[in-house]
């Protein structure tokens, strides 16, 4: 099993719901993003293409971050999810430097407020103390909502099908641009899309073998 995501850029409208739903679900402090939306344009007037690219951790099969981690805090699970065991992270940031996609963040200040100088609100306190506590001074990143998937599996739900066993950004997308499933299963939702629509990963030349594919 190798969990992966397919992002359909034809559907995506660049609304930032993935980015913001993730911030809410993980009570992420300011300036920390597990997923983001990148925009640019190609071509020259009037033949212009607006480029919109939602990005998140690629959960690479050949993950540079796993290789460079000196403590083994960054690990790859059987299902392909790359995650950080923050209790083992020493905060050397080699993984951040090594990730060619720059999808990792050093959580230096977990107490940074949403409203600077106005203290932590209830939203932040409950989020950071109960919902998703983050270990300060370690490296954090997207883990495909691993905790949620595991909980869903325990309830007997299907990953990528049932909402409670699907990453938050996939659920939040108003245009269903995201699909989540098992890349190893040739008949899965994701494998079929990749095959039919010629899905491609980012920077395949680097040999990282990402588990996030894009469709044009």
């Amino acid at each position: 099993m190798r969990l992966g995501m397919v992002i359909d850029r034809k559907r995506c409208i660049g609304c930032y719901s993935c980015q913001i739903s993730c911030k809410a679900a993980h009570a992420l402090p300011p300036d920390v993003f597990f997923g983001r939306v990148l925009v640019s344009e190609t071509g020259t007037y009037p033949t212009v293409t607006k480029q919109i690219l939602p990005v998140l951790c690629n959960h690479c099969k050949e993950a540079a971050c796993v290789k460079v981690c000196p403590t083994g805090a960054t690990q790859k699970r059987e299902d392909g999810i790359v995650y950080v065991n923050s209790e083992e992270c020493v905060g050397c940031r080699y993984c951040i430097v090594a990730c060619p996609y720059q999808m990792r963040t050093y959580n230096s200040d977990g107490n940074k407020e949403y409203w600077p100088g106005q203290g932590l609100t209830e939203l932040e306190r409950v989020g950071r103390e109960i919902l998703y506590p983050l270990e300060p001074n370690t490296v954090i990143k997207c883990n495909f909502c691993m905790e949620k998937l595991d909980e869903g599996l325990r309830k007997g739900l299907k990953i990528g099908i049932d909402r409670e066993a699907t990453p938050t950004c996939v659920n939040a997308c108003p245009v269903k641009a995201r699909t989540f499933g098992d890349l190893d299963d040739p008949n899965s939702n994701v494998s079929k899309l990749i095959k039919e629509r010629k899905g491609y990963p980012l920077h395949s030349e680097l040999g990282t073998e990402p588990s996030v594919y894009y469709l044009d």
Binding site: C15, Y16, S17, Q19, I20, S21, A24, R163, N171, A172, C173, P174, V175, K176
Partner: peptide, 9 residues
């Protein structure tokens, strides 16, 4: 199922 960023915020 989905929601826009304004709604999420």
């Amino acid at each position: 199922g989905g929601l826009c960023s304004k709604g999420l915020a």
